[in-house]
Design a protein around this nucleic acid. Structure first.
Ligand SMILES: Nc1ccn([C@H]2C[C@H](O)[C@@H](COP(=O)(O)OP(=O)(O)OP(=O)(O)O)O2)c(=O)n1
Ligand SMILES: [Mg+2]
Ligand SMILES: [Mg+2]
Length: 1080
DNA sequence: CGTGTCTGCAAG
DNA sequence: CATCGCTTGCAGACACG
């Protein structure tokens, strides 16, 4: 603890709180306050407070409340208020009119005597500032006041120190304190200013600071403060101790650990691992490998394990996959995200993707089940019952399951891990033999091999995992004695079995419950083992937290019912094993108390709830404090009143932080489009639309190497995220895609430093409800664009509604890209009025590359199949909103713009306003012209040649993929509305569908979705031919309906809508073709 | 203070 | 060759008015 120079201060008015550490703390930090506030202190240099505003009373009351407050944990908050009040009340000028004073007296409580001057009430400027109604002003003033009060405080401190000024070691230095520090920010503040430093609160420009005091540096902060000297708080303390300025470099804040640091000093242990491996398992490598350790490391990899076991039958599946892949001769290998098939191939092999997908599927399945059965109503409410929660989990699931592919490996004695690679590859799961070496799930193989050189790495077998999980879950469902089943993950469930185990406990004595629990657990374990030959463990207790901790104790292949001596049990539990405590929080706690691996008893004895909350935040602190005493009220029941619970989720997202290596923006754009489609298909299958889109980018940290240790990994990164309100819920991938591109440009990052991309759709709505909102957006017809004065939308006052030509309320609800579009349109039209802060309010930074206007993306040249006229398939960003707007837009720009779009802009972007109006054959010509002229402009002859070669190569590979995809889908066909359908019956359905809905103004959006999903499924199965036949059928029928229009104009809308639908389906197909490089 | 956006953490 | 570092929800920090 740093010295408190005010210890001799009079502490008054606090008699009732002498023993309260919190009040002491307040007093310590603000002990000078008691002087200032005291009129009875007896010290000559003290003056009564002079109050010249009308709000003394308010402050006095706040003060009283704070000092009288029995609630703790609000020290910080109170400190701020105190500080503020102090700022306000420190005498500005000696001899001002005294209009009242605050008097703090000895006694049980603080009392205040207020004598406000009623006549002076009109002078309430300052009072207004502080009336909590205008926080903007409040905070602006606060900064200035703070500096002022700092000065006052320094002067006062000098007086306290017998007139001797403290060494001004921090002279001319400006500090900013960030995050939780030790000592606290208030203490630091005090220390800095009395030693001549300037203190900047977080409200001011951080860049003005010469030093940033920060004990914990996250990657993002590292970037933010990269031009500052970032030091630990200890520096301040030590400087003062020494009475001079110490070298700040010795106190540099070290960045938090991340992926790269897991690796530590891999590579230095070459000799050691070499010799170990040699002696053990690879005699033939002994002779050759003096230098290379890679060989010896490889020897235990699954790809060579057949050598070790000399059993050809245990060839892992992944091997055969490779063989198949290689049969193609020279297909361009899928390395990074530039390859069009990357996404698919990545997800197919990503364990975390599988885990997440399985989890979501299971949740959905069980949600449905609960809703269907209304089982939650049956929940027991008998308080006499002993509540019992089971936590069931497979032992080292992946490792156990994968090892079954290798019958010759002795699972009980061989250290086994599941991974893709051999060095920087993650270990998904390792068995308990491996764990005895200290190996853990999530470690890199390289690191693990240092602990255990003989570690055997096996490949993944996702199919098998899925299979076992389905055995597992079906079994649980089959049992009818489990009240609630809550899937945590594929290999892990929480079960409420209160009713079952209490069946002999009708009198509430609790007798026999333990036995019932034990029997139930043994039965489940035995049955699951019989089903899967995998061992599972079960923990049981009366709440979720304790069940989890019991599970940990029971592992491996065990069971544990934690029902008595819970306090004692908890004592020696690692803090880290509490749910919600991970690496970061454990480290923070460990640092604070200087214990390597803190236990719960440390929390109990060395912390209190306030301290935890100060360190970890209010919610987290409280949660952990409760956990330390075994208190947990997490419910595993389904709350049907919760709207989100019924929707099942709040967001749908898609992350790729592997293989992201781009050079040019159009590569990024292409990938973003793929992400859009993936997101789209997830939204469709969940029947969701969303109205907020977030793009999160992982960017290489400046000091991180270009190539991270892990091949194509993300390395050390910081994250940037940008989000956009779409205004209308959608799932359209055209909209999503163009919005993403727009967001990407706003983020303005170095493309080569991009290491990860994530896309999140939030503000979800049921697609069912979307239909209605869609109708609403059509009201945008009210939107009129003509010469108009812009105003920032502040109040939605109806009075000036008619004055504006644009309904800004509607405008604001549009996606940013659309807003910008409209603005551009206005600029073009030369009708821009006063451009107030509209740019700012739309949040879009205009930049040369930004104009993401009404564009369509020319995706791929697709000549139709059987000699039909070639046609360019457009992918239009369709959206009712956009269309509605576009109708209102003058078309001038469109005519002149397209051929001369900015060179920076992606090649594929076109303005379609005009193209849309043209017959497709003519349109094709225009497009081709544009392409040619662009090529001519921007590309050298050499480039052209290269392009040609590329096309040729594409054709070649495509043909093979094409043939192959046809071959693999001979006798499979997806269900449509759960029915088996033939192409012919499907054609008939389409005809009927179109015929019937044209009169109703087009198909129901949901039906379209179902149909689109069907087509997509066809495509996924490689049945391109059939999809195209079906679309052709649609087109024919629509043309037919179109021809009939003369007879019945009412059907025009329906036909138009149908044309759009057809276009969308076409888009789907062309996308598929493009992704697979298929040219038909 | 109430709200929104961005960042960080945890889980498996 | 390597390697496949996902997805969701919650909470905190900070900005804005
Ligand atoms: N960092 C991690 C952690 C887990 N998993 C996968 C592999 C595991 O087999 C599965 C289940 O995770 P568990 O935490 O249950 O770990 P295990 O089942 O492997 O071991 P145990 O449950 O015995 O502790 O999730 C993973 O891929 N990566
Ligand atoms: Mg497990
Ligand atoms: Mg598990």
């Amino acid at each position: 603890m740093s010295p408190v120079p005010f210890s001799k201060c009079d502490v008054i008015g606090m008699a009732g709180h002498d023993d309260d550490p919190i009040h002491e703390e307040i007093l310590k930090q603000f002990s000078f306050l008691s002087f200032v506030l005291s009129t009875e202190g007896g010290q000559t240099q003290e003056r009564p407070i002079e109050i010249n505003d009308g709000q003394t009373q308010e402050h006095a009351i706040i003060l009283e409340e704070i000092l009288d407050d029995d609630l703790t944990g609000q020290t910080q908050e109170h400190a701020i208020i105190l500080e503020e009040i102090l700022d306000d009340h420190i005498p500005q000028e000696h001899g001002e009119n005294q209009t009242g004073h605050v008097q703090l007296e000895h006694g049980d409580n603080v009392t205040s005597h207020i004598h406000p001057n009623e006549d002076n009430d009109d002078d309430d400027n300052i009072g207004k500032v502080h009336s909590f109604g205008d926080y903007g002003t409040y905070f602006r003033h606060k900064h200035i006041k703070q500096q002022k009060s700092d000065k006052e405080y320094r002067e006062w401190d000098k007086l306290r120190n017998n007139g001797i000024e403290r060494p001004q070691i921090f002279n001319k230095m400006v500090f900013h304190v960030n995050g939780y520090t030790n000592p606290s920010i208030n203490e630091l503040h005090r220390l800095m200013i009395i030693h001549g430093g300037l203190f900047l609160s977080y409200l001011t420009k951080k860049s003005a600071a010469t030093h940033v005091i920060c004990d914990r540096l996250t990657p993002r902060k590292l970037v933010e403060f990269k031009h500052c000297k970032v030091v630990r708080a200890q520096w301040i303390v030590d400087c003062i101790q020494e009475g001079k300025l110490l070298d700040w470099k010795a106190y540099r804040t070290i960045p938090d650990i991340d992926y790269a640091q897991k690796r530590l000093s891999f590579g230095c242990t070459m000799a050691q691992s070499d010799s170990m491996a040699d002696s053990k398992s690879e005699p033939e490598s002994k002779s050759e490998s003096k230098l290379s350790n890679s060989n010896s490391n490889l020897d235990v990899d699954f790809s060579k394990s057949d050598d070790i076991e000399s059993d050809p039958e245990i060839l892992p599946l992944t091997q055969s996959q490779k063989v198949i892949e290689e049969q193609y001769g020279e297909p361009p290998r899928i390395l990074d995200a530039k390859h069009p098939d990357f996404l698919k191939s990545f997800f197919a092999k990503s364990r975390l993707h599988h885990l997440s997908t399985w989890k979501a599927d299971l949740r959905l399945k069980f949600l449905r089940r609960i809703v269907q059965q209304q089982k939650c109503h049956l929940q027991n409410t008998n308080t006499l019952f002993t509540k019992v929660i089971l936590h069931i989990d497979f032992d080292c699931f992946f490792a156990t399951a994968s090892a079954q592919n290798y019958p010759n490996i002795d699972f009980q004695t061989t250290p086994i891990a599941v991974s893709h690679g051999v060095n920087t590859s993650d270990i998904a799961s390792c068995n308990y033999v491996a764990r005895s070496f200290g190996i853990k799930n999530g470690m890199w193989v390289g690191g693990a091999r240092k602990l255990c050189p003989n570690l055997v790495c096996l490949g993944y077998d996702f199919q098998k995992y899925e299979e076992y999980a389905s055995h597992f879950y079906n079994y649980l469902l089959l049992r009818d004695d489990l009240d609630t089943i809550f899937p945590v993950l594929i290999d892990e469930v929480l079960v409420d079995c209160t009713l079952t185990v209490n069946k002999n406990n009708t009198n509430g004595s609790g007798v026999g419950v333990a036995k019932e629990v034990d029997v139930l657990m043994s039965t489940i374990r035995r049955d699951i083992f019989d089903l899967t030959k995998c061992t599972i463990s079960i923990g049981a207790s009366h709440n979720v937290l304790l069940a989890k901790l019991a599970l940990r104790k029971s592992k491996p292949n065990g069971q544990y019912y934690l029902s008595s001596n819970i306090e004692g049990f908890l004592e020696d539990v690692l803090v880290r094993s509490l749910p919600g405590v991970g690496r970061s929080i454990e480290k923070r706690i460990a640092q604070e108390i200087d214990v390597e691996e803190p236990l719960i008893q440390h929390i109990r004895t060395l912390f209190n709830e306030q301290k935890l909350c100060a360190m970890l935040g209010k919610a987290t602190g409280k949660k952990i404090w409760n956990y330390a005493y075994g208190i947990d009220d997490t419910a595993i029941e389904f709350d049907e009143n919760n709207k989100e619970a019924i929707l099942g989720r709040k967001t749908v997202s898609l992350d790729v932080n592997y293989g992201i290596r781009f050079d040019k923006v159009d590569q990024v754009d292409k990938f973003l489009m793929q992400l859009s489609q993936e997101l789209y298909s997830r939204l469709i299958s969940l029947r969701f639309c969303g109205s907020q889109l977030t793009l999160k980018l992982a960017i290489r940290l400046p000091e991180a190497p270009i190539d991270p240790p892990k091949y194509l990994g993300m390395g050390r990164c910081y994250f940037v995220s940008k989000s956009s309100r779409l205004g209308v819920a959608t799932n359209d991938w055209g909209i999503i895609g163009s919005e993403l591109k727009s967001l990407f440009r706003i983020a303005s990052v170095q493309i080569k430093d991009l290491r990860g991309i994530a896309v999140t759709m939030s503000k979800l709505e049921d697609a069912e409800l979307m239909k209605r909102s869609r109708q609403k957006t059509l009201d945008l017809n009210d939107l009129i664009v003509a010469g108009s004065k812009r105003r920032k939308r502040t109040v939605t006052g109806s009075s000036d509604y008619s004055v504006d030509k644009i309904d800004w309320d509607v405008f604001k609800s549009l996606p940013k890209s659309l807003q910008l579009e409209l603005e551009l349109e206005q600029i073009k039209g030369g009708s821009v009025g006063t451009r107030t802060s509209s740019t700012k309010s739309s949040g879009v930074i205009p930049s040369p590359t930004k104009p993401n206007g009404v564009k369509a993306y020319l995706q791929q040249l697709i000549p139709y199949q059987q000699g039909v006229l070639p046609e360019y398939v457009r992918v239009v960003e369709k959206s009712p909103t956009k269309k509605a707007i576009r109708k209102q837009l003058p078309k001038k720009r469109s005519a002149s713009n397209p051929p001369s779009s900015p060179p920076n802009w992606q090649d594929e972007s076109y303005n379609t306003s005009v193209l849309q109006e043209l017959p497709s054959s003519l349109r094709a010509e225009v497009v081709r012209d544009q392409q040619i002229s662009r090529k001519f402009k921007h590309e050298s002859l050499k480039q052209k040649l290269l392009d040609k070669q590329n096309i040729l190569r594409d054709v070649e590979t495509i043909t093979q993929a094409w043939i192959d995809s046809k071959a693999t889908t001979v006798n499979r066909s997806p269900l449509f509305l759960n029915e088996k359908v033939t192409t012919l019956s499907m054609k008939k359905k389409i005809q009927k569908w179109i015929q019937e809905t044209v009169e109703e103004g087009g198909p129901h959006p949901d039906d379209v979705q179902v149909f689109a999903a069907y087509i997509k499924q066809l495509l996924t199965m490689g049945d391109l031919t059939r999809s195209m036949v079906l679309v052709q059928e649609m087109e024919n029928r629509i043309d037919y309906e179109f021809a009939l229009l003369n007879r019945d104009r009412n059907r025009q809308v329906g036909v138009e809508v149908w044309k759009e639908v057809k276009e969308d389906i076409n888009t789907l197909i062309s996308q598929y073709c493009r992704c697979n490089k298929i040219i038909i």
